[in-house]
Design a protein around this nucleic acid. Structure first.
Lengths: 239, 239
DNA sequence: GCCGATTTGTCCGTATGTATC
DNA sequence: CGATACATACGGACAAATCGG
């Protein structure tokens, strides 16, 4: 980002992550931050609201902005932000690989539309992939993309990162993502495609993604082996 | 809430929910809303940002504010906001009941502190409850509350709603909640306390809750029978 | 208990930038 | 190019909560 508030957000976030601003201590007051960053108080407030929504701080009226983030011990795979598979793998320091199982163009039937949230008759790309970590197939993705939104997509690109292609090559911006987490039985197909060991249930993340045009261009089911799965979220009352 | 922006948020949200502003249509422009609600520019923007964070709309520069919410078919139990067990049950139209299994005062040991995020030596209330829907025990909660934050809490109150007691009687305000969803094996204790049928795995929501003082006063593990469990979340890129 | 200083929360009005049509 | 619409940023005013003297 190139905006002032976002750069300040990143700077403050990094200072929380590296311990400059420690758990249960107060950050410098608004008036201080205004001097430090040479900007208006509203800009500082915006930065702090992003910190709050990410669960880093909690402003307390009359007292200050309290740091409530603690470095986590566990490895989070999915966090309360949109990030690509590659970003998440890299963040956890894992060697990751993707294998494309299905890559076909279809037309949405009535029932598929009901299931995915697309409209009947939409031209879709049906994509199935497994995500492999350290030679173990841990995640299976069943995706449907709106064909018109992703011209020129090839199996080769799908093996890398669809999001990176959409954002860097097509110039699309992914904006909003509605996600639902459930737990489901493993199917024969799951067992076939993944290294499931003895697990008979999976963590399932269903994902509806909107681009900057407000078009829902992706509906994905990510099926995770449970021992690997973590989903993190921060909620703020009344926000 | 009594603030202007929140009342406008509620009004706009309700109009989306009842179909006044339909899926994939644009809301009235900022300039229109200013006239409608007789308030400033910035106040409208604040309301719309809350709508966006809740996944109702997506503003598109140069075009307008697009409604991207669709009424859902499924019953959500946990949503991207903080709500009490009773609120969630009521919203889903379920007859719910709570049974208290454990109610004891303890002091946090080194290992418990590591597990819950409290400090060793903290005086805690250890509470275990099962949530019963239509005569089936579907959820088991293992909670630790900071004793000092909840004076006067009795098993009787715990059977009702700890949050309602904290907010309405003690005047505490719950602010931030960090939640993590994982999937775990059912233990013998789970099988004992819940109606698990043949399920051998559970959806586990681990919850760290902060009050308005920035004090983490609750650490809860909610263990859900998978066929009942849904967790919903909206993520906004860069927010 | 009161008062004043500090700090966050809300709201306003204005100006400028950027994207769309 | 001009009109419209959202995005960012500024500065000011007042309210509400906290804290110390």
């Amino acid at each position: 980002m190139r905006t002032i508030y976002y750069e300040i957000y990143e700077d403050l976030r990094d200072k929380i992550l590296d311990g400059t601003y420690a758990y249960q201590t107060y950050m410098p007051a608004e008036s201080q931050l205004i001097k430090m960053y040479q900007c208006s108080h509203n800009t500082i407030r915006k930065s702090i609201s992003v910190l709050m929504l990410h669960g880093f701080v909690q402003p307390i009226r009359g007292k200050g902005v309290l740091v409530i983030y603690r470095p986590e011990r566990r490895a989070n795979f999915v966090l309360g932000d949109i990030e690509t598979f590659k970003e998440a793998a890299a963040r956890n320091g894992l060697v990751a690989q993707t294998k494309v199982l299905v890559f076909e163009h279809i037309t949405a039937s009535e029932s598929l539309a009901e299931l995915t949230g697309f409209m009947p008759g939409d031209e879709l790309l049906h994509l199935e992939r497994v995500r492999i970590f350290e030679n173990e197939a841990l995640i299976r993705d069943k995706s449907f993309f709106l064909s018109s939104a992703l011209p020129g997509l090839t199996p080769r690109i799908a093996e890398d990162s669809v999001y990176a292609y959409a954002e860097n090559v097509l110039g699309m911006r992914i904006v909003t993502s509605n996600r639902t987490v459930t737990v489901d039985y493993a199917t024969a197909e799951d067992r076939d495609a993944m290294d499931l060991l003895d697990f008979d249930m999976l963590a399932v993340v269903t994902n509806h993604t909107f681009n900057e045009q407000g078009v829902m261009f992706e509906s994905t089911q990510s099926r995770h082996r449970p021992d690997f799965f973590t989903f993190h979220d921060t909620a703020v009352r009344g926000y």
